[in-house]
Amino acid sequence: MSETKTIQFSEETMATVQRLIKRYPEGRQKSALLPLLHIAQAEFDGWLSPAVMDYVAVILSIKPIEVYEVASFYTMYNLNPVGKCLIEVCQTGPCWSRGSDDIVEHFEKKLGIKVGETTSDGQFTLKTVECLGSCGTAPMLQCGGDFYENLTNDKVDTLIEKLRANGQRSTYMKDNRVM
């Protein structure tokens, strides 16, 4: 999180951005705002700093406030730094009915943090979220673009080890070519 990057999309990403903007009628480039914020978040350390949002505003020729109001509305945009792996455990009714409380508790114990906190090594942030549309395979969680379903404490242990060993920052988008 401490690393500083120049806020500038790579040439390749910029090509994607230009391609995205063409999906909408002329003058409606603001429609590309949500996908662009996803890309920006993936590219700039997993969160949207004011500087990153201002950069996106320039690309789309809109006012910075138009970006802030959108970024602060949608839950998938992080307005503060998060750990490398953002663990999002679903806690709504159907997941609760299959034991999501136990899963959250197990994570808290294993990681030594409470919901909303980040481990001191900056590896994991634990979050509870509302329905992720995976009720038939509850309890479940999302980490980056991946769904982990039918969770048990054992599966959680394995996942934590796997993510720790991987060391990569999880992102909703594995690559920008998704869109």
Binding site: S31, L34, L37, H38, Y74, M179
Partner: peptide
Amino acid sequence: DLYVQPGAGAY
């Protein structure tokens, strides 16, 4: 022309 648009977490 058919495109996919992502949301960002809002019921």
